[in-house]
Simulated assay, not measured.
Amino acid sequence: MDDNLQLYLNMFFIFLASGLINFWLSGVLSKKNKWLVFIIPGIVLAISVAFLILGITANDDTGWAALGYLLISGFTLFVFIGTLISSIILFFRHKVK
């Protein structure tokens, strides 16, 4: 299999899996309040920013620690995008009582 195709399939799987998990969890949260659907994307964004800061401020001689933190930050950014899109879908599908 082509390496680029495998990379895109992995990114699509991360994006889809995080969106589906968030769709279910935010659906449960939205029964309490409509605005609670944005809690999970907010938490994931905070985690991504934390790993980005750790990657930028890593003090390692080889640089592998910084690269690891930045890679994790990039992956959590994909998770953030997936969860945000599913939360926006749930927000607009929420029935007003």
Rank of each mutant, 00 (worst) to 15 (best):
F78K: 05
S87F: 04
H94P: 03
F15T: 00
W64M: 13
K31Y: 12
K31T: 06
I14K: 06
G68F: 10
N4F: 12
N4Q: 09
L29K: 07
A17P: 02
G74I: 00
S86A: 09
L71K: 07
G55N: 04
I88A: 11
V44P: 03
I88H: 02
D3I: 07
D60T: 08
D3Q: 06
L90N: 08
V79H: 01
L20Q: 05
V49R: 09
S26G: 08
I53T: 11
T62N: 12
S30I: 09
V79F: 02
H94W: 15
V96M: 09
D2W: 01
L20G: 05
N10H: 15
F15S: 02
K34S: 07
L45D: 04
L71T: 09
D3P: 01
F15H: 03
L45Y: 14
T76L: 04
L70R: 14
S48T: 10
A17L: 15
M1Q: 10
F78Q: 03
D2I: 00
L9M: 10
M1W: 02
I47A: 15
Y8Q: 08
W64C: 05
L20T: 07
I88L: 13
S86P: 04
S86Q: 05
L5S: 05
A66N: 13
T62G: 11
D2H: 03
S48W: 06
F15E: 00
N22K: 04
D60P: 02
Y8C: 05
M1K: 10
I88D: 01
Y8F: 13
D60G: 07
A66Y: 12
A58R: 06
W35A: 10
A17G: 02
K97Y: 03
L70M: 13
I39V: 15
A66L: 07
V49F: 14
S73C: 08
S18M: 12
L5T: 04
V79K: 00
M1E: 08
T76R: 03
M1G: 14
L29M: 07
F92P: 02
I39E: 01
F12M: 12
L36T: 12
F15W: 11
P41T: 09
L9R: 12
L84M: 14
G63F: 09
V49Q: 10
A66K: 11
F13H: 11
I40P: 06
